[in-house]
Simulated scan of single mutants.
Amino acid sequence: MATLARAARAGAALCGLSAALLAAAPAHAYDAGDWLLRVGATQVRPKSDTGKALDGAVGLHANNSVRPSFTVTYMATRNIGIELLGAVPFQHDVRGSGAVGGNIVDTKQLPPTLSLQWHFLPDSRIQPYVGVGLNYTHFFDTKGRGALSSNDVKLTDSWGVAGQIGVDYQLSDRWLLNADVRYIDIDSRVRLNGDTIGRAHIDPWVFTVAVGYRF
């Protein structure tokens, strides 16, 4: 009887250990053909010295902007993802320094970015990745303010390379938390009444936090 009791206790302990290991096991890894939808908030943070205009007489400085955003990712393999970034239009105030100061331009922009990602720990609950891709930034609703309020101001659209690092934390087989940071090459010509007067080298860091779902 004692032997049977010890065996029963050992069996119960083994069952408990198995249950604990199962609870601690990583969530289901991404598979080829999975779709990931993430929804969150993104901050675009242009570099402090955005550019020059009027032969260097005016410095340009664009402010930060935060907007709701989303990404859609298709997992071509367990390691390779193809991601599209979209967002509500960002709005930036551009301040001048030097010959013309104060808020001189308001503009909105959409920066859709298509990236190829490498997920290098596909079996982990914490799944880091890196990506590289192509960004297209469309500027619109650009208006002169302050000293330029009576002028026609335009910012031309931009094509550039984007780099990315990020991480997914799997809450379950379907739900996840995400954070990533990108650096995007965004350069635009500044036009005043049809004439090019300078270039804006916006080149922002782009920070995102999001909640995601795997289909």
Rank of each mutant, 00 (worst) to 15 (best):
S188P: 01
Y183V: 05
D180C: 02
R189W: 02
Y183P: 02
R199M: 07
N178H: 04
G194A: 07
L176D: 05
R182F: 00
L176V: 07
A200M: 14
L192Q: 10
W175C: 02
L171W: 08
T196Q: 13
L176Q: 08
N178F: 03
D187Y: 03
Q170K: 13
V190A: 04
D195Y: 13
N193D: 13
A179S: 11
A179P: 05
D195R: 15
L171K: 06
N178I: 01
R191S: 12
D195T: 13
A200G: 12
D180L: 07
R174E: 05
Q170V: 03
R191D: 05
D187K: 14
I197F: 06
R174G: 10
V206S: 01
D173F: 07
A179F: 09
N193R: 14
R189C: 02
F207Q: 15
L192W: 04
A179V: 12
D180N: 14
R182W: 01
L171P: 07
H201N: 14
I184Q: 01
A200S: 15
R174L: 06
H201A: 14
L177P: 02
D203Y: 09
R174F: 08
I186P: 00
V206E: 01
G198V: 08
Q170G: 07
D203L: 07
T196P: 01
D203S: 11
G194W: 08
T196V: 03
V206G: 00
D173S: 12
N178E: 08
S172T: 13
F207R: 15
S172D: 09
D180Y: 04
I197L: 09
G198M: 11
P204V: 00
D195P: 02
L176C: 06
D185Q: 13
G194R: 11
Y183Q: 06
D187V: 12
I197V: 15
W175N: 10
S188E: 06
R199A: 06
